[in-house]
Design a protein around this nucleic acid. Structure first.
Lengths: 336, 336
DNA sequence: AATTTGAATGTTAACGCTAACATAATCTCA
DNA sequence: TGAGATTATGTTAGCGTTAACATTCAAATT
């Protein structure tokens, strides 16, 4: 039975006393030091169990200068993509015995970003994962922090600390799908022009077109439904003979489809639409949206594997790019 | 210019030396102790700035036994609601100088929950916020942890540490909206029966019906689009003369609407539909979904205000319930 | 002027842990 | 058999901070 409420938590000394060893032996047991006699180890472990001993992280951090804390700097954490990524990373980190402090930021507010970085510095994070397509934020984090900074969700221009889907390949696959269905004039609705994903997806789209000698038609939106809606409302589909759209996100596609619907244009009869993200809603929007799916679990695992390898000065694993999957649904069809 | 890379970060002693005071005076400046001469304070602050001094959280935690860490135990963090709540809480906590360690869990896997609680114990969190409608998880957290545990997203059955929208009132408002449009037979598609929100929303629905002497028709789903779709596909609307549906979530409503569409039933001409959540997609789904919106920012702020008051042994603030807002869109209309 | 007060600062110890250096006990092999 | 190596353990010190207790000095009070 636990003693009075003023009892402080058991320390190594308490365990040591009960197990009839020195506190250092307890420390060795906790840290799996090799030269401990099995029976001593057992005795210590029993004492730890009996006292409900838990090592004090603050003391350990103070002594070893390793906080076991990782930071996440993420924007748009209420959206499916970032939220899933954060979730997956946090899970992988926890399994590896690390703690994660997440900071949600608006990457276009520099003061806020700096503030968040300061916050993370204070915790003494050992490494940081940046989940925002705003390239500036990554640069800022790398200059302000002296710990490894890994980035997710971007393409990997030779950055040794980066994981993410190959957005370009994914966009190419999506565009190829439309081309193979016979579409000749394919509109791409790009995301915000300063987002790395936007650029990569657009590049993939153009690469696909080029290999079939088709010409590109691009409109720029932001990631919102509204932006897709506006373009859907105003774009001259007939004049430009556009029969298919590759939207840079499902949200853009949703907005677009609503506008098309209001204009009396049917999906996929008049216009085929491909999205990007495979949001939970995608299968249920209209007749179902053809879209590209990312495997966030895998991204999380890789991010942690890579970052921890870096922290522990091991050789960095090299990954083959994560294959994007095209989810073909009813929003795309063969051209007559 | 920073010295060689082996230089350790500046400690209080370094600052003290530069400012010609004792380290304790530095500590006093850092902690805003009242009896420090303004000029001394200035001198110390200048030294801190010059050395880029940052207090060592681990050392402080070790000495004061206050980690400045809060935990979040949350399920379904990739969904809009929980993700927005986590985001808002984290922001409010950061502004209050606290750090947040988030643990995403599957609340029905008890081992995982226990594991996450153990993880948070190790960090030495001072308080926990539970964001999952699974009542068991809250109970478990409260028994396993000796720190204040606050719950979000539930109704507040006299729990002193709880914030959240009044789900019952919100559901009542939503149902009233349908009743006032002249609907007599209103189907409620409930969320999972063991979720507190489900129960509260159903209660609100029934309360509204009762005051108009209408009888209730309930189907149980989970939160998914699929579940809504299945019910939409199979429910006998004609036979039961149902002209309106109040769905316990937007996702359920989305699935439902798709099924109705496939059956050739039009929204809102044949069936009016109200959802719950106001997801970003809601305004763009079909002609726009009438739904209930939650103010997550406010929930986050209140959660932190309440928890910190508890931690700092202040009097707990009492809040008036957060008013839910009905977003009326094109999915509901007057009955002929 | 002597004494009390209080404001401003300094000194010491301790929080719980691990690294580094002892030491003791056991084993190896010439 | 005994010197050196190895294994298992103990001892000491210090990580950076704050609490508690000194100390100093000027202002206030008698």
């Amino acid at each position: 039975m636990p003693a009075s409420k003023t009892t402080r938590a058991a320390s190594m000394f308490d365990v040591a006393e009960l197990a009839q060893v020195s506190h250092q032996t307890v420390s060795r047991v906790v840290n799996n030091h090799p030269s401990i006699r099995p029976e001593t180890k057992l005795r210590v472990e029993q004492a730890m169990a009996k006292l409900g001993y838990r090592p004090n992280l603050a003391a350990r951090a103070l002594k070893t200068k390793r906080s076991k804390m990782l930071g996440i700097l993420a924007s748009d954490t209420n959206l499916n993509g970032p939220a899933s990524t954060v979730q997956a990373i946090e899970k992988a980190a926890r399994e590896a015995g690390y703690f994660v402090v997440t900071c949600g930021i608006n990457p276009s507010a520099e003061a806020e970003v700096l503030n968040a970085i300061e916050h993370l510095k204070l915790v003494g994070i050992e490494g940081l994962i940046v989940i925002t397509p705003h390239a500036e934020t990554l640069k800022l984090a790398r200059t302000k922090l002296r710990v490894p900074v890994l980035t997710v969700d971007t393409d990997l221009h030779g950055d040794e600390l980066a994981v993410g889907m190959d957005n370009q390949a994914a966009a190419q696959t999506a565009t190829n799908h439309l081309i193979e269905l016979g579409h000749k004039n394919i509109l791409h609705i790009q995301g915000p022009a300063n987002w790395i994903e936007s650029i990569a997806r657009k590049a993939g789209y153009e690469k696909a077109l080029k290999s079939y000698k088709l010409s590109s038609i691009v409109e720029v939106a932001d990631w919102s439904l509204e932006a897709g809606y506006e373009i859907g409302k105003n774009f001259d589909f007939e004049g430009k003979k556009v029969t298919a759209v590759f939207a840079a996100s499902d949200h853009i596609a949703f907005g677009l489809i609503k506008a098309l619907d209001e204009r009396g244009m049917q999906v996929p009869k008049d216009i085929s639409v491909v999205g990007f993200d495979d949001l939970p809603e995608a299968a249920y929007f209209g007749k179902g949206l053809t879209t590209v799916r990312q495997d966030f679990e895998q991204i999380g695992e890789r991010a942690i594997a890579l970052l921890l390898a870096k922290l522990e000065l091991q050789e960095l694993p090299t990954f083959t790019p994560i294959e994007p999957t095209l989810q073909v649904r009813a929003s795309t069809r063969k051209v007559n």
